[in-house]
Simulated assay, not measured.
Amino acid sequence: MNRKIDYKINENDTGKTVEGFLKEHGYTHQVLVRLKQTDHGILRNGIWAYTNERLCKDDLITVQIVENECSDNIAPVNLPLDIAYEDDDIIVINKPFDMPAHPSAGNHDNTLANALMYYYGSQNKPFVYRCINRLDRDTTGLTIVAKHALAGGILGNAVAKRAIHRTYYAVCSGCTPACMRISAPIARKDASTIERCVDFKRGEYAVTDFIRIKYNPDNNLSLVKLRLLTGRTHQIRVHMKYIGFPLIGDFLYNPDYTYISRQALHSGRLVFTHPVTGQKMNLISDIPSDMKSLF
């Protein structure tokens, strides 16, 4: 990875230090230290720059991010990849079901990480895996992966500030209300390392909004569109079960496989600010056929 980024200094930035300017653009201390150690890591008008230098109007700051390492212990595996978007800073994958985001016990060579290691390895490009919005194994749809430390840090901060807006689609058992806000704290269930539950004493604040798009009385199923205001583990699955309309095909919370073989949940839209260009990104993924066919 060798990414060069230029910044033209305007009047509002005059007088700021190089370091102060870059921090305002999302550069963490760790990234700045690495840039200082990189040959031609930070240039001012084509000349190596100290980070305490003061900027002048029309200065050109050039940053060069060089990453030659690869993620340890992630084997490259040739798996299908549906790429929704890619540029020098990020890649957005339309993830299929039955694909974990990260390697874990029992999942060493079937993950999104394995697929991306192969994808970039086949191009002779070093790659460190930085997944931003991790999806559960059987949840389909859009997930962002940062291609370098700067993008990863900025997008990680955006997640913490709830500045990545996510829209999901789910198929639920029963006829849900037309619309609803669910505000119920979520905690890890006792004696389980995986399962979560609503717990008003121990749980973390969690809010989900949804509207019902369609209801099929023949199979008593609702198609709902959900927006997450927080990002707790299994939030949609736990919240919908809590109000009495669990997702179908959910092995953990509602193992009903009458109509579908996996949890009926899809990450259908991501809206966020690009970590480097500042462009507003609005990415959409169509509802997969196994969910759409039920209506």
Rank of each mutant, 00 (worst) to 15 (best):
M99L: 07
K189C: 09
N78A: 14
L155Y: 01
K36T: 10
I211R: 15
L60V: 14
P76W: 00
F251D: 14
V31E: 08
Q279T: 12
T38I: 05
V224S: 03
T139A: 10
N110E: 03
H274V: 06
W48S: 13
R137T: 15
H40C: 09
H234L: 04
K16G: 03
Y85E: 01
T273V: 13
M117H: 15
L247Y: 00
P177E: 09
G26L: 03
I186H: 04
H25I: 01
T230P: 01
C197M: 13
I248R: 03
R166I: 13
A115C: 06
G231M: 09
T233S: 13
E69T: 12
L35D: 06
E86D: 03
R134W: 00
T38K: 02
A115Q: 03
V33M: 10
H234Y: 02
K280A: 09
Y85L: 01
M180T: 08
A264R: 01
M117L: 11
M1H: 12
T233W: 07
Q64F: 04
C172I: 07
E53L: 13
S289E: 14
G41C: 00
K125M: 13
I194K: 12
R262L: 06
I74D: 03
D199H: 02
S261T: 11
N219T: 13
N12C: 05
D6C: 10
K4F: 08
Q30C: 04
D98Y: 10
R44L: 15
A170E: 07
I182G: 11
P103A: 10
R54A: 10
H239C: 09
D6T: 11
D256A: 09
K4N: 09
H266V: 02
S289D: 13
R54G: 07
G268Q: 06
R232S: 01
L229N: 13
L43Q: 09
L247E: 01
T143N: 02
